[in-house]
Design a protein around this nucleic acid. Sequence first.
DNA 1: CTCTGTTTAGCGGTCT
DNA 2: AGACCGCTAAACAGAG
Length: 259
Amino acid sequence: MPRPSRESYGDQKPPYSYISLTAMAIWSSPERMLPLSEIYRFIMDRFPYYRRNTQRWQNSLRHNLSFNDCFVKVPRRPDRPGKGAYWTLHPQAFDMFENGSLLRRRKRFKLQKGEKDNLNAELAALASFNRAFLARQAGAPPPPPPLPTASMYSPPMCSQLSPEPAELPETASITMLPRERPRRAFTIDALLEPEPPRASPSPPNHLLAMQAVQVMPQIDFTMPSPYVLAAQRYQAELLQAAAHALRPCYLLPPPLPVA
DNA sequence: CTCTGTTTAGCGGTCT
DNA sequence: AGACCGCTAAACAGAG
């Protein structure tokens, strides 16, 4: 049987929705999140169809990113400045595709009003953290640090967010998010100081932790959490589906070792 | 100025 | 038939 070429769709439009294509791009990245330009690049690299009429489909793709709750915009890490934010998949959207099929979603992923508010609050806090971090780096007097909110430290929202980064070239020691982590004051100094010894279990803030992975490479995350396992399962399904549907067109890195 | 992100609107296809 | 999904166009604002 002839091996299908990497570009077996040629100039034909691939049978994947923009949501699927975006999910592929995001999940093909080591950190499970990408800036918009990298999402474009992923799609154009693998599907020649999308090398034309870029204005049209990129507009649609941006519309999808904004419109669908399944995509979460994560502020850039402070030491990696650039245009635009990073985009990731909301972990609660893992089961959005039937049996891992990327062809059509089972149902639209929609966050409840409260969930959305919580998420937005956390993301706003992260953005504030970034600003404070940058101000601190610049030696400027730091603006008032963002205050901790209940949602930043408690489920259900933040405990489900943030796919687990598989590998971070610049942060090789990081493996997993902890299940038990001491609660820390949400101040620049507290967040940047070395990890205190672990004491009693406390709910982690996974959204913060996701960026902590970006910002604080010295932290050693060791314990998998349920959402990490869910993310790994989802990735395995995605890989299987992608391997079946796309074959060499869609070349992902090897799946995470499932604990 | 270009790119990124948000929002609204409309249309056609599919599902229930 | 109505709800839902996906695609496209377009206007607009803000950031880099």
